[in-house]
Design a protein around this nucleic acid. Structure first.
Lengths: 105, 105
DNA sequence: GCTATTGTTCGATGAGCATCAAAGAGTTTA
DNA sequence: TAAACTCTTTGATGCTCATCGAACAATAGC
């Protein structure tokens, strides 16, 4: 069984919320790591790639912020979470934003 | 006489600082108003266009944040300030970002 | 010099946020 | 069932930030 955690609809994506989420370096590092992976990746793997020196609760907090901003989709599979970037939704709502932010290191 | 207020160089522009500046709705409203004007515009005119319900000190604070983030250039002329968006610098450093953020209302 | 204009700086306040340790919740495996 | 695993939630802390009123420049015009 797998369930998708609640996330905002495309129409309700708010630029202020999105930019606030992306303004944090740790969250951008997470986004970049998730973005680089072609397919879905679980949280721990992403954290490994992002090389963040943060506690687990803090990482969890950042994941939540990203998801609630509409930047990522989280699917619970077993005891891990599979996270993806909502690329199409974001491109539809804010064209060019994701590339501009994540491409610029 | 006119003098340009201190501003960060193109190379020292920091994405975190830029995104933090753009994350605030009031500052984005200011940016959009400045951006729409082909030429330079003084602060009061911009404030009029942006239609912000904020005190003068707060507006001044936001102008400072924008300038120190490298988003705007401020030139003092007489007793007014002429503000422009550093379009070329931003496009050079973060291609597509300005369009993506300001174009998406 | 005096006054009005245009914005800045100072000090304070209240809200929000990133962070952590400790405890909890759901899931797999032994 | 018990233990290990993967994350989340709770509660607390310290910091940053948006906001305002009051006071302070700097300049233009009379």
């Amino acid at each position: 069984m797998s369930r998708t955690l609640p996330e905002p609809s495309v129409d309700s994506l708010d630029l202020t919320v999105v930019l606030s989420a992306l303004a944090d370096p740790a969250r951008r590092a997470l986004m970049t790591a998730i973005y680089r992976n072609a397919g879905p990746v679980n949280c721990s793997a992403v954290v490994g790639q992002a090389d963040l020196d943060l506690s687990t609760p803090t990482i969890s907090h950042h994941y939540r912020v990203l998801r609630e901003a509409g930047l990522t989709r989280t699917v619970v599979q077993g005891r891990t979470r599979v996270v993806t970037v909502r690329r199409d939704d974001l491109d539809a709502r804010f064209p060019g934003l994701l590339t501009a932010v994540l491409g610029a290191g």
